[in-house]
């Protein structure tokens, strides 16, 4: 190795960023096209019923017969009467533009022009997705913080104590094998019985999902310093606490961020699941309400907002990761 190696580092050739745009765009367009196509057979029963009511001949003309026929067969037999597939009031599968309209109506329109919107009342409308998204986001953040703290503390314990290694890890793994939808109502009921309600129960469910990736990642990260690094600390006669602060924790930072990306997405899922049985706002409550009242566009709008939030949160963690690692000199 010579001093010249310094110059070559970090000079890896990359494609310009915009070159990734066409394939990404093509993928999105393909998905939207599939969605539109799928909406036709999904909605065909309702479309034909409405056409029949409007006096148009449909085949077969018996509603009972149609009910038992496959959607694809109905589409094939009534190619000329499918005009309403993408504009039904209560579609089984709303078309993408219907979801977008619902998204727009339940966010910007509701807040700007709605009776309870932020423009008229100064506070978010409880009928808007902005409000519900905010409720979910709060629970997500609190749950994420609890989960991360718990995960780090458990990992430190596991790395330092053989007893904890043997006793905690199996339980952590078992905890993740229980379906969270089955556990969530119990957590809420138990916490309610000791007087805890509102944000915290949802945050607990959220933390329940997010602590696990943090434990696994941090155990790996805290154990990542090699034998030589540990020997060096031994030659300094450094106590375990010093090894933790000066070696193990800094060395585990890249592992921590990888876990946090999984953890924050899991936190969001946990918060939404926690909102299902409570029905006091949040994207989860919104989804369930949508399914009660056959408002599929409302469900899809909430789903898309949840997905967008998850993407945003993971991106934010990634941004923090890049900044932190650059600051620590480990970005190369």
């Amino acid at each position: 190795m010579t001093d010249a190696t310094v110059a070559t580092q970090g000079a890896m050739r990359r494609w310009p960023r915009w070159l990734s745009l066409p394939p990404v765009l093509a993928m999105v367009l393909a998905l939207i096209a599939i969605w539109y196509v799928a909406a036709v057979p999904m909605n065909v029963h309702e479309v034909l019923t409405r056409a029949e009511r409007a006096g148009i001949a449909v085949s077969p003309d018996s509603a009972v017969l149609r009910r038992d026929m496959s959607a694809l067969a109905l589409v094939a037999r009534n190619p000329g009467t499918l005009g309403e597939s993408w504009s039904l009031d209560r579609p089984r599968l709303p078309a993408p533009h219907q979801v977008l309209v619902e998204l727009y109506d339940s966010t910007i329109v509701e807040e700007v022009t709605g009776r309870r919107g932020i423009v008229r009342t100064g506070s978010l409308s409880n009928r808007s997705l902005v409000y519900h998204g905010w409720v979910t986001l709060n629970a997500t953040f609190v749950g994420f913080l609890i989960g991360t703290a718990l995960g780090v503390v458990l990992a430190v314990g596991i790395v330092h104590s053989r007893v904890m290694d043997l006793s905690v890890m199996p339980w952590a793994i078992v905890s993740q094998t229980i379906p969270i939808v089955a556990l969530a109502p119990m957590i809420i009921v138990v916490l309610y019985s000791i007087g805890i309600q509102g944000l915290l129960p949802k945050a607990v469910i959220s933390a329940y999902l997010s602590f696990f990736p943090v434990v696994v990642g941090m155990v790996k990260g805290l154990r990542s310093p090699g034998a030589m690094q540990m020997d060096l600390m031994r030659t300094y006669n450094a106590p375990a606490s010093t090894v933790l602060w000066k070696l193990r924790l800094p060395a585990s930072v890249p592992y921590l961020f990888a876990s946090l990306k999984i953890g924050i997405a899991a936190s969001l899922v946990g918060a939404i699941v926690g909102e299902l049985p409570v029905q006091q706002g949040g994207l989860g409550a919104r989804m369930l309400a949508g399914s009660y009242y056959g408002q599929t566009a409302q469900i899809w709008a909430a789903l898309i907002l949840a997905a967008a939030l998850a993407a945003l949160l993971v991106w934010a963690v990634g941004w923090l990761e890049r900044r932190t690692l650059a600051r620590m000199g480990m970005a190369a």
Binding site: M228, Q229, D231, L232, R234, T235, Y236, N237, L247, P250, A251, V253, M328, G329, M330
Partner: peptide, 19 residues
């Protein structure tokens, strides 16, 4: 060792990348 009587240099530099 406890009295920190020696400095040890390993085969690899083993510098902390974050320092």
């Amino acid at each position: 060792r406890r009295a920190r009587a020696y400095g040890y240099v390993f085969q690899a530099a083993g510098l902390y990348p974050w320092r």
